[in-house]
Design a protein around this nucleic acid. Structure first.
Lengths: 204, 204
DNA sequence: AGTCGGTGTTGACAATGTCAACATTATACG
DNA sequence: CGTATAATGTTGACATTGTCAACACCGACT
């Protein structure tokens, strides 16, 4: 009876739609999500989703936002975990980030690739991504306080780190990295290299 | 009479299609490219493109490949230029790479994002991307020979470098990097950081 | 009981990718 | 030079899809 519209005819179509869409994305990519097939799989008709989402893009944006929330939680759990060293926490953050992408390729693609999104809800999505980014910035700041790296603009350092992990994730998802390679090793190597680069970098 | 089908009725519809599609992509994104509008803008009918490309995806793949060729040429020009130091060449390579993406966002997105591509021509695309990657590997090898960095697997180091520039380019294109930021400075900073990281990294 | 808004359904429409049948034109070949 | 043949382009048609409008149903509140 408040923000999340509860069950009426169906039970809770809104969340069912989000779940089913996410499942379909995982199974066969964002392209496979169609209003009609969604309805079919949920036992409702094709235009039922329009009672809960303005249009298809809005639905997908909601799914993507849920993805950001999941990833954000995973990242946050690292900070909240056992008080390891700040370097270790940064490493874990990067590794966890890429691992999420590798485990949920289609979902990750939707989050950043904006594959089927054509609305101006996009600011909303960018905001969700931004919240995630701020967690990276915070981790960098903490590391700075511990004296692990140069005290330059943490935001800039965070951009570099984010670029590296996001790039690695994207390349892997798109199959650009030879399948024979050891992705876990590459993930570790990448995060370490960036951390070394940030530590040693002499100029702002 | 050989691989590139010459002008018949139209003049050279095949290349005209590629050019026009690229223009439309630049103007308003890959989504705006439609068989019908393509025909309209070129004064032919909607299904004329089918005489030159198997389907829409094949056409877009061809456009993307042309993009890889352009970017590859730009990168190669750096290697062929004045014999600067190997570090400087690597820096330039990274900077040029991101600059291309920033200047041709929609085209770059098509090349890697596979936005509207649904075929198995994708191996062909991956190959084009791979050729580009090999140029990075070569530049890293050259730098290794000059003693600039540790002599570990150049391929792994190249992946790290590629991830960083590709990630930065993607984030920028997707508007994830605050517009107030100085992108050129960020590009330079990123490439330098990665180079430092590769140099200093102690473990394989 | 009756009203009303929330929810779901069906019918319809436009846009699009694509194929088949047909038309036209360039090129090869006698 | 004239015709056959393949390359190129056109039109008609169809299925899929997103979306809207008109209608139907159902639960809550008076």
């Amino acid at each position: 009876m408040d923000s999340p519209p509860r069950a009426y005819h169906h039970g809770d179509l809104r969340t069912a739609l989000l779940d089913e869409a996410a499942a379909m994305i995982t199974e066969s990519g964002a392209q496979s999500v169609t209003m009609r097939s969604l309805g079919l799989r949920l036992g409702v008709s094709r235009s039922a989703p329009y009672r809960h989402f303005e249009d298809k893009s809005a639905l997908l944006v909601a799914v993507a936002k849920a993805g950001f929330r999941r990833l954000g939680d995973r990242v946050q759990a690292i900070g909240a975990g056992a008080p390891r060293s700040s370097v270790e926490r940064l490493r874990r953050l990067g590794e966890e980030y890429v691992r999420f992408a590798v485990e949920n390729p289609a979902h990750y693609r939707l989050m950043y690739g904006k594959e089927a999104l054509t609305r101006q809800d996009l600011p909303e999505l960018r905001e969700a991504a931004n919240a995630l980014f701020e967690q990276v910035v915070d981790a960098i700041r903490a590391h700075q306080r511990r004296g692990g790296i140069k005290r330059q603009d943490p935001r800039v350092q965070a951009y570099v780190a984010w670029s590296a992990v996001h790039g690695l994730a994207s390349l892997w998802i798109d199959g650009q990295i030879q399948a024979t390679d050891d992705i876990d090793g590459l993930i570790r190597h990448t995060t370490r290299t960036v951390l070394e680069g940030i530590r040693a970098h002499p100029r702002a």
